[in-house]
Simulated scan of single mutants.
Amino acid sequence: MDENARYEQFLRDRITELREQRNISEHRLSLELGKSGSYIRSITSGLTLPSVRELFNIIAYFEISPAEFFTGLEDKTSLRVALTEKLRELSDEDLEKVSTFIGWIKK
């Protein structure tokens, strides 16, 4: 699968995942976004892709950031992804310590 196809599949799967977490139908989500009842179905079936503006509307609907939406797009086995997940669990105080350590390493 080429990169574009992988990104498109991720987008469709992620919308479905978030929608199912909220226990909301494709039809209802479409209507709540101010679209026709089949809008989300056309995206998740691969018939169409949302515009960037509409993608941001979908992301905002789920009350997450674009970064959170795209979490998991990278190879889950990569060290960068594993570290990012661990960083999300740290307190602000611990994040400051990590930042200091990284600054020390870069010197």
Score class of each variant (00 low, 15 high):
Met1Tyr: 00
Asp2Met: 06
Glu3Gly: 09
Ala5Cys: 03
Gln9Trp: 10
Phe10His: 13
Arg12Ile: 02
Asp13Trp: 06
Gln21Lys: 15
Arg22Val: 08
Asn23Trp: 07
Asn23Val: 13
Ile24Cys: 05
Ile24Gln: 05
Ser25Pro: 08
His27Asp: 14
Glu32Ile: 08
Glu32Leu: 15
Lys35His: 06
Gly37Glu: 13
Ser38Glu: 09
Tyr39Met: 07
Tyr39Ala: 05
Ile40Asn: 00
Ser42Tyr: 11
Ser42Met: 15
Ser42Gln: 15
Ile43Trp: 01
Ile43Glu: 00
Thr48Asn: 13
Leu49His: 00
Leu49Ala: 03
Pro50Ala: 02
Val52Met: 07
Val52Ser: 09
Val52Tyr: 04
Glu54Val: 04
Leu55Gly: 02
Ile59Gln: 00
Phe62Thr: 08
Phe62Met: 09
Ile64Pro: 01
Ser65Tyr: 08
Ser65Asp: 10
Pro66Asp: 09
Ala67Phe: 09
Ala67Met: 09
Ala67His: 10
Glu68Cys: 02
Glu74Gly: 08
Ala82Asn: 11
Thr84Ile: 11
Thr84Glu: 14
Glu85Lys: 12
Lys86His: 12
Lys86Ser: 13
Glu89Met: 14
Leu90Gln: 14
Leu90Ala: 12
Asp92Val: 05
Asp94Glu: 15
Leu95Lys: 15
Glu96Gly: 04
Glu96Ile: 05
Lys97Ala: 14
Val98Phe: 01
Thr100Glu: 10
Trp104Glu: 06
Ile105Pro: 03
